[in-house]
């Protein structure tokens, strides 16, 4: 579904992505992991066309996406920091995104699921971080698209919301969608992901299932396995 070839990205002198190659097949939950600053968000944003790579190419269903925008119709994205225009109310924001995308949506179910009904008329500027994140999730999941990209989706969520988020992800997986997730919460990753993509020094250091990763690093849990991988960078 997504094919990335020799992707390079520098910010000034800092090389963030270095000749990165990656292929993500259709269907399943892929966790993109890596230490802070390893280029996870940059990779995701390159796929979305928000970051413009210095060289290399990205293909979505066989077509290059550089300088294109129509392919984003098939992508739902949850950004890392949920910060919306403070003057708008939750309801207005939702109808605005609906209006911009012009696709069928099922926001009512999600609003109820996350208990956002009492907040619908409130201004986004007055919401707490966790509530904003719930709005963010509603905006991401209300459209029915084949690719879902979640950047740190668990930030600020209470346990109930987290359970709901997991069930949403699981449901999307059942429907055969492709889900890319970055997270630092290993228990969350272990619970929901089918495959791990581990980024280090701007390259894919490991790609495979959680079990493969555990055997390769001789670790009993994912957390330790990842810690072992990260340690190699510090060494």
């Amino acid at each position: 579904m997504i094919k990335i070839e020799k992707l390079n990205k520098k910010f000034g002198k800092l090389i963030v992505l270095n000749q990165l190659d990656l292929e993500i097949s259709s269907g399943g939950v892929f966790a993109i992991l890596g230490p802070n600053g390893s280029g996870k968000t940059t990779l995701i944003k390159s796929i979305l066309g928000m970051v413009i790579p210095n060289s290399g190419n990205i293909y979505y269903n066989g077509e290059s996406i550089l300088k294109k925008w129509k392919y984003r119709k098939n992508v739902n994205y949850l950004p890392q920091i949920a910060n919306f225009p403070a003057n708008l109310s939750v309801k207005e924001l939702i109808s605005m995104v609906k209006n911009l995308r012009n696709e069928p949506s099922n926001e009512h179910h999600l609003i109820e699921l996350f208990g956002l009904t009492p907040f619908l008329k409130q201004k986004l500027g007055n919401l707490s971080g966790g509530t904003k994140q719930k709005v963010n999730i509603v905006l991401t999941f209300m459209f029915d698209n084949e690719l879902i990209i979640l950047d740190e989706p668990t930030t600020g969520l209470d346990p109930i919301a987290l359970i709901n988020l997991k069930s949403l992800i699981n449901q999307a997986r059942k429907e055969g969608k492709t889900i890319l997730i970055t997270s630092h919460i290993m228990s969350f990753v272990e619970e929901i992901s089918d495959e791990i993509v581990f980024l280090l020094d701007g390259k894919i250091y490991f790609k495979g299932s959680i079990n493969e990763l555990k055997t390769q690093t001789n670790s009993s849990s994912l957390e330790i396995a990842i810690a072992n991988l990260i340690k190699k960078q510090y060494a």
Partner: peptide
Amino acid sequence: YNSREFTELLLAQPIKR
């Protein structure tokens, strides 16, 4: 500067930059 995050939200939508 105030609408930076919002602009990012728009950039992820199918709209030309």
